[in-house]
């Protein structure tokens, strides 16, 4: 049945049901009025019913915990003893002077830098490689995204072995080239590199596909005219491709920053505790929060660290929204 729009039908009223026609006149009328009432009720309140589950659940398990985090962070609070008194901003005052916190923040940001720079560069080149006339295109794309679809903790176990000091495959290969093996867990920079490799292994393909999509949207005549002007392929890459996908690069950087603030699984599996090495050389802020809250039973301080993580993420998220809306309005 084809419906002609705007052909004089009133959208709110339900059409008479054919089978019910023989009913008496007044009954029919009552029925229609009831149906139109129901229709109006439906139109009015259905939208709220539809969004209610989301806002209800997010209110209880999203907004409330965030605010509650702040409340707990203002107290001396332990799991065993419960709330032990108001502490004001003492937890935050301690946080500012806590060398472990600054160390964890340094590690989090340090691992980020070590991970993100090669990851984005390689992803850009890889996307450029995939953006060609390729045989087995689908196969290569599947191969690139494969690591993204694995268990993070499981792969951290595998990488933990690969980066083992004595029997790790990576040290074995280094030694077979006549180089010294590296103690990946005790050296700060080496541990950052190992964790960065795990992150990059997982996210390289994801970013590659996002860049590839952006690159496919670049008009090809740009390249043609550049080629006529005698620009080399490398030059075309840096002067056309990279500037054209810059908004996408910014997007992936912001997403990566937000993810990085929560970095937890890889370093925890890598160190097999929450300390991140003997000198906390690769303890992240999320690990410190977990250690304080769960192991040292210091809920108040753990909550303060959580709150700082939120604040940092909110800053990044706001940048994200502003940035994306700027791109949207520009296009």
């Amino acid at each position: 049945m084809k419906i002609v729009k705007g052909a004089g039908t009133v959208p709110d009223r339900e059409p008479p049901v054919p089978g019910d026609a023989p009913a008496g006149e007044p009954r029919q009328e009552r029925r229609t009025r009831w149906q139109s009432l129901r229709g109006r009720f439906d139109r009015r309140f259905s939208p709220y019913l539809f969004i209610a589950p989301y806002f209800l659940l997010f209110g209880i398990f999203g907004v409330f915990p965030m605010l509650f985090t702040f409340w707990v962070s203002l107290h001396d609070w332990s799991f065993i003893g419960g709330k032990a008194g108001f502490a004001g901003l003492d937890n935050y005052a301690f946080l500012v002077t806590d060398a472990k916190f600054w160390n964890a923040l340094l590690n989090t940001l340090g691992i980020f830098v070590v991970a993100i720079v090669p990851q984005l560069l390689i992803a850009l080149f890889l996307a450029d490689t995939l953006n060609r006339q390729l045989r087995w295109r689908g196969f290569f794309r599947m191969g690139v995204i494969l690591p993204y679809v694995t268990s993070i903790a499981a792969m951290a176990i595998v990488f933990g072995q690969l980066f083992g000091r004595d029997f790790g495959l990576i040290n074995l290969s280094l030694e077979s080239f006549g180089l010294d093996g590296i103690d990946w867990r005790s050296n700060r920079l080496a541990s950052w590199v190992a964790i960065a490799v795990m992150i990059d292994w997982r996210w390289l393909g994801f970013n590659t596909l996002i860049y590839l999509a952006a690159m496919q949207a670049i008009p090809r005549d740009l390249y043609e005219s550049a080629a006529i002007d005698g620009a080399s392929r490398l030059r075309q890459f840096w002067q056309i491709t990279v500037p054209m996908v810059r908004p996408t690069i910014m997007f992936t950087v912001i997403i990566a920053t937000i993810g990085q603030m929560q970095l937890f699984t890889e370093p925890v599996i890598f160190s097999a505790d929450y300390r991140g090495g003997n000198q906390n050389q690769f303890q992240t802020v999320a690990m410190l929060m977990f250690e304080e809250a769960r192991q040292l039973d210091n809920f108040g301080y753990g909550a303060a660290i959580s709150w700082i993580i939120f604040v940092l993420i909110v800053i990044f998220a706001v940048i994200n929204v502003l940035f994306i809306s700027r791109i949207r309005s520009a296009t």
Binding site: F61, G62, P65, F68, M289, R294, S306, V321
Partner: peptide
């Protein structure tokens, strides 16, 4: 409201969630 909060990781609210 959704756009502004969707990046917030509930997972990081370990302490209040445990109390809850």
């Amino acid at each position: 409201g959704i756009v502004l909060t969707m990046m917030l990781p509930v997972q990081m609210a370990v302490v209040p969630m445990l109390i809850m």
